[in-house]
Nucleic acid binder design. Structure first.
Lengths: 360, 360
DNA sequence: AATCTTTTCGTTAACGTTAACGATTAATAA
DNA sequence: TTATTAATCGTTAACGTTAACGAAAAGATT
């Protein structure tokens, strides 16, 4: 059962009339080989289509120097923090790649404080990491970080959200605009023509997040693209969230309107809204929200939330590590940019997507 | 950056006071080691939690004997055959595992002829395969096949559908009952109370397929579980499909009824139905179907189909190979049984799921 | 021309596992 | 007892890649 295997370094050496040491030097761009022989070797590599055996390579390297990845994400304050989810996926991927020689180091920043991001990113730069997984929360600070990383040729993958930065980076995240469009489609199906809609942005002291804004834009774009646009009413309500939500604004605008209403909450906190709307249970609300946290799932189960959109945070982390491994071992960058599908969750299919199910 | 690596075979040998050859014999259950030393070695393996390095193992073994997988699926007649999709995923996984030493051999049967399944499965049994990927289309023939495979301890993974067989096997497929429930939920959202529904089973000469039946059952179960069951009307129509669909039955029952109607087509052929209903365009139909074939997607795009359910056929094949590899190299069976999520597809998120997107 | 640098290259020992091949000891037969 | 066979075990070379080490050749310096 011996097969015509792809050529190894030994075959290349024989064909080029040199030793495997020289081939290795060419492959790794190390000095100590004359221009002439280098050219010859590269030609043979081209012709034969030599591909290094990652198995053998990692077997050797895992014992000497691990692939070191740093992960810089927001602090995980409580047990149900969103950021536990990508971390779960990252840890899973690292565990799977354990014997390939890989290590992960976590750094945390305060998501209300750009300076903490800067401090932590500087800590990372002091070390000798091969790649970074992070989140483009703060525009200027992310740009600074990217600039320094570009100089030292360290790969970066951003999770969760995307914004225009001055340096190219890799993104594994959901297209929030498209997610907003999907939300529009789903609510329209429930309300039909001439619907009444409310986009609820739950904002913090730093204002609205880029993800949420893009979701709203997508939502509105969906209704604009209808054959009879303008027949629907869409209102945006920005609710500040510090300790608690203040419903002063929402009560007259939403509750006191007649007929069915479509509510689109652009972040993970739709459950907060519903917690406070308990006393208005007779209002006919249709709600689409984001993320499969415990509270949202409870409302999905009892029918207060019709649809949830999942952005597969666990898989984002998982895919980032796997993608980086592939890139660092094979120079294959294709898996570092993933447009996460807009998963639609209803009561009946919710279980599949919980507990960090890692299937596509 | 040298790390406390998990112990290798050499450490075990030293601790047990024997040579690595003996350890290897114990690990592979090969003869030539006395009961006493075997016991001792096993104890050390227990204590240290030794795990073999798959990297090194496959590096060695890939050169001598490949992992050989046979895949027995229905014939692929035309370019848009459903069975091209799992095959795509299988080939992708095999390509990724190429240097690990793996090979795939395809066998095809005629899905209308159980005897062709039997013949092909006998062909497979003549060879020396390590594992089988197939489809439990024919109950008695699948049972026969499983029995013979069990004797020779060959692993089996069934894709696509599930039915009760006399021998245990692994399944990577979507729970069709749950998919039917989801379809019920989606159509109900569009029709609201007291809806009028039609379940369309498109059947062939061998009768209704098990998947389709389970989907119908799930659909009906959904409406049974409503708080006010019995208010909805649900009719089942079995349409024979040989060369073409005959709409004689469907016209009076569906088209001539007043008001909006929900249509649930339990297989991939919803486009066939719509092809024939072109002349009745003014009827208010809401349609949920299965599978992202080209024709269904076209109807999704132009709004004739509201929702499609995706069963990720490419991923099923992909996961089968990856799961088998993990099982055959690490005795880890956990990835051989996957309950594929019921992906809900609308016009706005369809693109993510096309072209065999392999992300969870 | 002889010595010293520098450049260029081949040799070799690992990484951890596998399995063929011998070597040693124990068990049986003569 | 000695010869023969069987059971038990250690040694070794390989899988393909990596990189340290040192040898040889070429170049520069007195």
């Amino acid at each position: 059962m011996k097969n015509e295997n792809s050529p190894g370094i030994k075959e290349i050496a024989k064909l080029a009339g040199v030793s495997i040491g020289t081939i290795d030097r060419v492959l790794h761009n190390r000095p100590g080989v004359s221009a002439k022989t280098k050219e010859k070797v590269l030609e043979i590599i081209q012709q034969t289509g030599y591909k290094k055996n990652i198995l053998a390579s990692r077997l050797k390297l895992a014992a000497t120097r691990k692939i070191q990845i740093a992960c810089l994400i927001p602090e995980i304050k409580d047990k149900s923090s969103y950021w536990k989810l990508p971390q779960y996926g990252i840890n899973k991927a690292v565990a799977e790649l354990k014997e390939q020689g890989i290590s992960i180091s976590y750094y945390y920043f305060n998501s209300f404080d750009p300076r903490s991001f800067e401090e932590q990113s500087n800590e990372i730069l002091k070390k000798d990491f091969d790649a970074i997984i992070s989140v483009p929360f703060f525009k200027t600070e992310s740009n600074q970080f990217l600039q320094k990383l570009e100089e030292s040729e360290i790969a970066v993958v951003f999770l969760d959200s995307r914004q225009e930065l001055n340096f190219k980076a890799n993104y594994i995240n959901q297209d929030s605009f498209k997610a907003g469009q999907v939300a529009g489609r789903l609510l329209e199906g429930l309300l039909k023509e001439n619907g009444l809609y409310f986009v609820i942005n739950i904002i913090n002291e730093r204002g609205i997040q880029v993800n949420n804004l893009q979701r709203e834009q997508g939502f509105r774009a969906y209704f604009q693209s209808k054959s009879n646009p303008g027949k629907d009413e869409i209102y945006t309500i920005n609710l500040p969230f510090d300790d608690h939500l203040d419903l002063q604004e929402i009560i007259p605008k939403v509750i006191e309107r007649q007929g069915p209403k479509g509510i689109f909450v652009t972040n993970a906190r739709s459950f907060r809204l519903l917690d406070l709307l308990k006393e208005y249970e007779d209002t006919e609300l249709f709600l689409v929200g984001f993320d499969l946290n415990e509270q949202n799932l409870a409302y999905l189960k009892n029918g207060k939330i019709q649809f949830l959109i999942n952005q597969k945070p666990e898989y984002q982390g998982y895919a980032a590590v796997k993608g980086l491994y592939k890139y660092l071992t094979s120079q294959d960058q294709t898996e570092l940019n993933i447009d996460i599908p807009v998963d639609i969750i209803v009561k009946e299919n919710a279980e599949f997507y919980m507990n960090g199910h890692m299937t596509p």
